[in-house]
Design a protein around this nucleic acid. Structure first.
Lengths: 229, 229
DNA sequence: TGCGACATCCCCCAATTGCGGGAATTGGCA
DNA sequence: TGCCAATTCCCGCAATTGGGGGATGTCGCA
């Protein structure tokens, strides 16, 4: 699990929030520093261009909040988050990245991120996100929150797949797996980075091999349900 | 998965967002209307003081977004959300309430809410939340997002779905049952002795109620709810 | 007596799906 | 080296699907 910031705010109000920044792009880093100076109530205690540097220098500074980019050279952003949350349990971690890839979002959140913002957030949004994170909240960009909610509401199907499913090639299995997640062929194509036509092609073969004639039936077979026919 | 809000923004950046408000407290309602007038790009198409009134008057107005309070006289806010999302599938629903009770948050989200704001949000936050919701995002107040994330990360095995197929009429269940057996709509119609058109008609309603957009997804939801217990 | 929920059926339309071809590439394997 | 399975993509076509309207009839409730 993940310790969502044990130490609530208690100290709030007066003293400015100590913020640490981990961002490899110099331009962006400067931009963030500028925002922190502009928005009232923040004080940048440090800015680093790599996870390694931040891990070395941040601990003694004990920032209240850290803004972490995910695209870092060397150690990955997720590993950086994991390490930071272990070393600085009282520090809120807010991811700021251009990606809204579900994988990275979930990886970051389970690595200890308290918030997740997409680049494009306004200075005001970044500021209130930092404050909210420090106060125990989880500031998420709407697009990211949508992913989390969807994932949250989409859990029912007992994941006991991996059953027999004879003669299905690995690629065919991957596609079936997506359909079993409720995706439509077009989405599956995008997710697996292949042409929509190719997915349709694999589907033809899947149907023949499983002796079914619709997506729904194929998924039922895949989930091990006993579909009549 | 809910495939939150299928219809992305048709890209209508110019036209102001049509907003509907459901809030029983007159003071708060006026306050919201004032905010909508102050913030650029919004146009209030209606404000109602109860779920019943909103359900009666809103449909023909087809608001782009609706701000819904949870504390309503008569029909509960959650039921109101469920009904609205069924009747106005293209309308984004944003909850605005003082409660951050996990139960209500989850009930609202699985009832079809696209966003969830806590009272105390600033006019700017409300405005950007409405826009984000209309664009397919899920604006959540940080405190609410924290609940969702925690719930998401704290449930490896039994997810515990929201509700066991909310408000499906008996006939609708029979049809879903057939589809879950692998039948195609035509066969289901024959088995249940009704017109193919009627089955299609029920399907439309089932999709709306379950927030899905394909037979496969509906069956997955059905099976997931069955596996409950 | 009117209203709302349910159920039944119909029409239309655009998009998707299922299914039949064809074709090129890759990597084993005999 | 030739064959084959797996993958990738495209074209076309008929049927199905998802969604938008309507319209009718029953039933229970106010």
């Amino acid at each position: 699990m993940r310790p969502r910031l044990e130490s609530p705010p208690d100290t709030k109000s007066e003293r400015p929030l100590g913020v640490g920044v981990v961002e490899d792009n110099a331009i962006t880093r400067q931009l963030l520093l500028g925002i922190l100076q502009t928005q009232p109530g923040f004080e940048c205690v440090g800015a680093w261009s790599s996870a390694e540097e931040a891990l070395r220098a941040a601990p003694p500074l004990k920032p209240d909040v850290m803004l972490v980019d995910l695209e870092l050279p060397g150690m990955s952003g997720e590993d950086c988050l994991r390490a930071l949350s272990a070393i600085l349990p009282g520090t809120a971690l807010v991811v700021l990245t251009a990606h809204d890839d579900p994988k990275r979002v979930f990886a970051s959140l389970s690595a200890g991120a308290n918030g997740y913002l997409l680049k494009g957030a306004t200075p005001e949004e970044i500021a209130s996100a930092l404050t909210a994170a420090h106060e125990g909240g989880a500031p998420l960009s709407p697009a990211v929150a949508g992913l989390v909610i969807t994932a949250f509401l989409t859990k029912p199907p007992t994941p006991k797949r991996g059953l027999p499913l004879p003669s299905l090639s690995p690629r065919e299995r991957q596609i079936l797996e997506q359909l079993a997640q409720g995706k439509v062929p077009k989405e599956a194509a995008a997710i697996l980075s292949m042409s929509y036509e190719t997915v349709r092609d694999h589907l033809k073969r899947i149907y023949r091999k499983l002796h079914v004639r619709s997506r729904t039936e194929a998924v039922l077979r895949y989930l091990g349900a006993e579909a009549a026919s």
